[in-house]
Design a protein around this nucleic acid. Structure first.
Lengths: 149, 149
DNA sequence: CTACAAGCTCAAGTGAACTTGAGGTCAAGC
DNA sequence: GCTTGACCTCAAGTTCACTTGAGCTTGTAG
């Protein structure tokens, strides 16, 4: 029989996430644990799902803050409903697509702009054919999609 | 006439990179500057190209250390030759493609694994049909492509 | 019963990439 | 001549996501 509750070592082995990170996530409120009489952490099985969610989201590029916000929207400790998944999956898909689009743009820049040696950005006709660029302020924005403030 | 040398303010405006960051890059040896009699920095025009290179590479996902290494391979202060670009462009393209592939994998996971609610990773038949996973140690590796230690 | 592995807390450290602040100099317009 | 803005240095601070270490307790195998 599988035990009802898992130790931090079990979770570490099953998730591949270090014990220190698990304690850190708990401190940040991303996961929860019971305590055994000894004071040792005991995790419900569902925590593994939550951890997978966290790792997954991190690889997509979300910060722990953002992940916390997403987790907070899900029914507590409960398997999310179809509606929740669909909202979340749409929003993450958009995010992934945006990043892929940026990478494709960068790839193009790699063979065009960098290849042509005109890396001075402001006047590269290949990437900035209409010279819209100056109006948007300084910086190599055209390749970068204005992703950041 | 364009002045031969640019101030840090000029560079900031043209590159969109903050003056503090420019000083930081110089400290790290990524860019160089002359000094005016006053002690103020004066930049050669070519520095803009170097900065564009840095910003570009950062968006691809290279660290400043890696970027420094790449810059060190280029003829100092000199416009890189076709051979240099081709080597570099190939290696960066591979990197971009790898990241895109990971994002695609994550996107699939989003609709398959997460969608099906089996996010416990280790035994998701959709993503890990042959159960190769256990042999590779713990952790959500299959989506993540073993990208990190 | 005794190792020793596994846990615990809490404070401090890490590394990446910068930013901020204090305190001071330099150049240009009025 | 004076103010204002652009620059300077150097040290310290910031955010993110953890890790490490010290010092102590628990659980388990022989």
């Amino acid at each position: 029989m599988l035990p009802a509750l898992l130790t931090i070592g079990d979770i570490r082995r099953r998730s591949g996430v270090a014990a220190s990170a698990l304690r850190f996530y708990e401190e940040r409120g991303l996961i929860r644990s019971e305590r055994a009489g000894s004071g040792h952490r005991r995790y419900a099985r569902a925590v593994l799902r939550r951890i997978a969610f966290i790792v997954f989201a991190q690889r997509i590029g979300l910060t722990l803050n953002e992940i916390g916000a997403e987790l907070a929207k899900l029914p507590d400790g409960h398997v999310p409903k179809a509606r929740d998944w669909s909202r979340l999956s749409q929003s993450w898909t958009r995010r992934i697509d945006a990043r892929i689009a940026e990478l494709e743009r960068l790839k193009t820049g790699l063979s065009l702009c960098i290849g042509c040696g005109c890396l001075s950005l402001e006047r590269c006709k290949l990437v900035n054919p209409e010279d819209r660029f100056a109006a948007r302020g300084p910086g190599p924005r055209h390749w970068l999609g204005d992703g950041r403030p």
